[in-house]
């Protein structure tokens, strides 16, 4: 059983931050690396993430709602937005990603597992995309009560739960010691004014699992330039260059919205 495990989600076509994340996790000594899904959307050149994700022996990749949609060649990403503006931008990036993902990669996405279960030093660990009960459920820090998180852990038999899907990382240790971690996304900054992105590193060497969010810098100027060259919305490039979300704003709860610029 390795002591160090890395987890990330939300690649969003960002092959540059994906490479930087994998390099950083391996450099720190992570023996297993988990990707919790959503390879596509937002960024340029969808096919460039797959050589990094496929066939790496230390990497376990899960299907998110985006991967399900691309894999099954559906009409939209099923991200769960409710606002017309959010849906407009989501559709722009979905149509682009669907059109620029090779069939063999679509098939690979279609056949990915939707959950991982592990035993880490006697603890039951569950890895899911949105939540254990719904692939596109948003688990935000400010809108998940302790009671609800305890219910999810009880209902799904887990001591440790990792999710992604929202794009903003957080970590909750419940009074009984069980933990829920949203690993955030590496494809887009976390709406905090930093251009770096985060992944989660779990250290199992102590009495209980210790979770650290590791910031990763990458050549975000190059990514923004490539997004513009591909004709993707300027709003997306602005987010990459400033660290502030310009789209997907209406799904944010009041607290998370308050922290952002827009």
């Amino acid at each position: 059983m390795p002591d160090l495990i890395a987890l990330f989600g939300g690649v969003y076509n960002n092959y540059l931050s994906l490479k930087a994340t994998l390099d950083d996790a391996r450099r720190r000594g992570a023996h297993e690396i988990y990707c919790l899904g959503d390879m596509g959307g937002f960024g340029p050149h969808p096919d460039r993430v797959f050589p990094l994700l496929r066939d790496a022996k230390d990497l376990f990749v899960m299907q998110g709602n985006y991967d399900h949609s691309i894999g099954h060649r559906l009409d939209d990403c099923a991200c769960g937005y409710t606002d017309p503006r959010d849906n407009h931008f989501a559709q722009v990036s979905y149509d682009y990603t669907l059109a620029h993902t090779a069939d063999e990669h679509k098939d690979w996405l279609r056949d990915l597992p939707t959950h991982f279960r592990r035993q880490w030093r006697g603890r039951d660990v569950l890895l899911a995309h949105g939540s254990p009960r719904r692939v596109n459920e948003f688990l935000w820090e400010s809108t998940c009560s302790d009671a609800f998180l305890a219910h999810l852990l009880d209902a799904h038999g887990a001591d440790l739960l990792f999710v992604t899907h929202t794009g903003i990382p957080w970590h909750r240790r419940l009074p009984d010691g069980r933990q829920v971690i949203n690993v955030g996304a590496i494809g887009r900054p976390a709406n905090d004014g930093r251009t770096s992105v985060d992944y989660a590193l779990v250290d199992l060497s102590g009495d209980e699992p210790s979770v650290t969010f590791c910031p990763v810098s990458y050549d975000h100027h190059r990514l923004a330039n490539e997004m513009r060259e591909e004709g993707l919305p300027e709003e997306f490039a602005e987010t990459i260059l400033t660290g502030w979300w310009t789209t997907c704003l209406e799904i944010l709860p009041a607290k998370e919205r308050h922290r952002g610029r827009y």
Partner: peptide, 9 residues
């Protein structure tokens, strides 16, 4: 009562 049921919000 709701907390005992694991209420979210």
């Amino acid at each position: 009562d709701a907390v005992a049921q694991g209420v979210k919000e």
